[in-house]
C-alpha cells in the first residue's frame, strides 16, 4: 500500500531485476530493458547495485566515463547528480555505477531507499540490477523497488534459485513479480532436451513477461557495449517486446521459430516423423 502511494505521487516505477543464480542474464536484461524504455522516450535511471563486482557499466559501454559511484553518493562524497552518467546515444538514459573496490556492506537498504526517493523526482523508470545471491546485496536492491523482474534460464539450478527468490520477494511484500525466461532454445525444446517456457511457468507460477531466445548477437552486443534491444535480431526483438509489456502494453510473444536454420527445420521434420 505504501509503495502504491509513493508511486502515484511521483509517477515513477522502481523495478528490480533479480534471479538468485548468477550468470543467467540479469545485467543484460537490465541494460536492454533500460535502453529500450529510453528509446521510447522515457526517462530512465539504471542502478548497478552489485558493489564490488560492477558489470552494468561495461555492458552499457559506459565504463570509461565513471567518476563517482553509488557508494560515493551514500557516503556523501558527491551529490546524486554527479554520480549519474548520461548515455549520449539515448536522451533520458542515465547510469548510476557501482563501486568496484568496496563490498556489499558499504551500502544499507535504508540508504538505497533514500537514493531512490531522490531519483524518483527526475526519472520515470528506475531499474536496479541486483547482484546474484540472497545476502545484503539482494536486500539493498529490493529495498526501494515496487516491482520485480525475475530472470531465469530453462535449467534446473536457475529455476530452483528463481523459486527461492520469488518466495523472498513475496515475503517482502512484492505484489508484482514477472518472469523472464532467458536463453531459450526452441530446437532443444522440440527435441525434448530443454524445458519449454510453459514448463517453467507451470513450475514457478508467476506471470511471464518475456521469452528471450539464446542468441549469439547478445555476446556481440556485449562485446561492443551497446544493448541490442530493438535491433533486427531475435533477442533484440524479444527485449523490445519485454519493454512493451513492462510499460503495460499487451504484446504477443515472438514466434521463436524465426532464426532457426534451414537444417534444424529439416532435421526437426525427421525427428517428428
Amino acid at each position: 500500500m505504501e509503495n502504491q502511494f509513493s508511486r502515484e505521487q511521483s509517477g515513477s516505477e522502481v523495478i528490480v531485476v533479480t534471479s538468485g543464480k548468477g550468470g543467467v542474464g540479469k545485467t543484460t536484461t537490465s541494460a536492454n530493458v533500460g535502453t529500450g524504455l529510453a528509446k521510447l522516450g522515457r526517462k530512465v535511471c539504471l542502478i548497478d547495485t552489485d558493489i564490488g563486482l560492477r558489470n552494468l557499466d561495461v555492458v552499457m559501454g559506459l565504463e570509461n566515463r565513471i567518476v563517482y559511484n553509488l557508494v560515493d553518493v551514500v557516503e556523501g562524497n558527491c551529490r546524486v547528480k554527479q554520480a549519474l552518467i548520461r548515455d549520449k546515444r539515448h536522451p533520458g538514459l542515465y547510469l548510476m555505477p557501482s563501486a568496484q573496490t568496496r563490498d556489499k556492506t558499504a551500502v544499507t537498504p535504508g540508504q538505497m531507499v533514500k537514493v531512490i526517493e531522490h531519483l524518483k523526482e527526475q526519472f520515470e523508470y528506475i531499474i536496479l540490477d541486483c547482484p546474484a545471491g540472497i545476502e545484503q546485496g539482494f536486500q539493498n536492491a529490493i529495498a526501494g523497488a515496487d516491482r520485480a523482474l525475475v530472470v531465469t534460464t530453462p535449467e534446473v539450478s536457475a529455476i530452483r534459485d528463481a523459486d527461492r527468490i520469488i518466495g523472498l520477494l513475496e515475503a517482502n511484500g512484492f505484489k508484482q513479480i514477472d518472469l523472464i525466461i532467458n536463453r531459450l532454445r526452441t530446437d532443444m525444446v522440440r527435441r525434448g532436451d530443454m524445458m519449454s517456457a510453459q514448463d517453467v511457468v507451470d513450475i514457478l507460477a508467476v506471470p511471464l513477461i518475456g521469452i528471450v531466445p539464446d542468441d549469439e548477437n547478445v555476446v556481440v552486443a556485449t562485446n561492443q557495449g551497446e544493448p541490442l534491444v530493438g535491433n533486427d535480431t531475435p533477442a533484440g526483438q524479444a527485449y523490445a517486446n519485454v519493454v512493451q509489456r513492462v510499460m503495460g502494453k499487451e504484446t504477443p510473444f515472438l514466434n521463436l521459430e524465426r532464426g532457426i536454420s534451414f537444417w534444424t527445420k529439416v532435421s526437426g521434420i525427421f525427428h517428428r516423423a
Binding site: 534446473v156 527435441r191 525434448g192 530443454m194 513450475i203
Partner: peptide, 26 residues
C-alpha cells in the same frame, strides 16, 4: 531414438524440479 527412448531430459528436469521445490518450499 525418440520412439524407444526413456524419459526425455526435459521430462527428467521437470520431475527433479518438482521434488526439489517441494523440499525447498517446505
Amino acid at each position: 531414438r525418440h520412439f524407444f527412448q526413456r524419459k526425455s531430459s526435459r521430462q527428467v528436469a521437470k520431475d527433479r524440479l518438482k521434488i526439489l521445490l517441494i523440499a525447498d518450499r517446505v
